[in-house]
Design a protein around this nucleic acid. Sequence first.
DNA 1: CGTGGTGCTTCCCACCGTGGGAGGGTCAAG
DNA 2: CTTGACCCTCCCACGGTGGGAAGCACCACG
Lengths: 152, 152
Amino acid sequence: MNIGQASATSGVSAKMLRYYESIGLIPKAVRTEVGYRVYTENDVQTLRFIRRARDLGLSIERIKLLVGLWHDRGRSSADVKRVAADHVAELEAKILELTAMRDTLQELADACHGDHRPECPILRDLAGGGAKSRRAPASRKAARASVPAEHC
Amino acid sequence: MNIGQASATSGVSAKMLRYYESIGLIPKAVRTEVGYRVYTENDVQTLRFIRRARDLGLSIERIKLLVGLWHDRGRSSADVKRVAADHVAELEAKILELTAMRDTLQELADACHGDHRPECPILRDLAGGGAKSRRAPASRKAARASVPAEHC
DNA sequence: CGTGGTGCTTCCCACCGTGGGAGGGTCAAG
DNA sequence: CTTGACCCTCCCACGGTGGGAAGCACCACG
C-alpha cells in the first residue's frame, strides 16, 4: 500500500504520515526500490488508533505512550487509565479557563447597549475601569490606580 | 520609560512588546539616540488594555479591532459588541468541542478497571472496537470492518 | 513508444503567540 | 574602570497542520 492508500483508509493525511514518522511516533516505513513508502493493513490499524486519539485531543506525546502500551501485551490497564486521566484533567482545566473567559465576556456584552453610541462597558472594562467584575485571570496586579482617561 | 519599566507596569513581557510592535498591533515606539524604546504612561495604558484582552482569549486580530474602536471617539458600541460576540461564539464552540472530548474519555476511563491486567476499554475503543459509544468526532468513516487483532 | 496526468519524494514556509538565548552595545553605581 | 543590569537585533523552538515547489516514478491511453 502506498502512502496515498494508507492515508485514505486511515484518515491521516499523507503529510501527517511523514511527519509522524519523522518525529518517531510511527516507525520508519519500509521503502520500495525507488523510495516509496509501503504500508501494511497493520500499519493502517495503528494509524486509525492515532487518528482517534488525536480526535480526543490527546497530544502526540501521550499518544506515543498509548501506542506503546497498546503494543505491550504485559501492560496494566492502570497505566492506560492514568494517561487518560491526565488528559481529562488537562481538558477540564482548559474548559474551566475558556468558560471563565466566555462568562466574563458574555457579561460585559450583556451590559453593552450595542447601539450607535460610543459608550461601551466592554471597552471600559478592558481599559481598566471595570475592576469590580473581573474574575477570569485570578491573579493580576491589583494596583490599577487612576486611569489618565486619555481614551474613552 | 524603558521597555523594562513598561513591561513591568503593564504586565506585557518585553519580548511581546517588541513583537506587538513588529506586527503593527502597537505603533513603533519612539527611540532614544542609542536606540532604546521609550514608552509613556499612555502607552502603558494601551498595553494594559491589550493584556486584559489577551487574558480574555481574544486573538491579536480582534484586539487590533478593539484598540481601533477604543481610540475612535465616534465608534458605536454595537461594533464593539459584535467583536465580543464573535469571540464568545468561538469560545463556546471550543468549549463544546473540549467537553465532548472530555466526556468521551471520561466514560472510557470509568469503564477501565485500572488494575494490573492488560484488558482495557480505552485501548479497545481507540483500536476501533468500541464503535458503539463514540460520539465526539461526529463524522467519521463508519466502515470499521474486522480488526486483524494483531494487537490487543 | 510517447505523453499526460497522477502520485511519490524532499525541502521550505506559514500559521499563533510565546519563550529562550546568543552576541553585542549602554548605562549607572561602586 | 569594572561590574552588573539593561537594551538591541536576530535566530530557534514549541504543536501540529497545511501549502507548495522542484524533481522522479508510474500507469493508461492513443
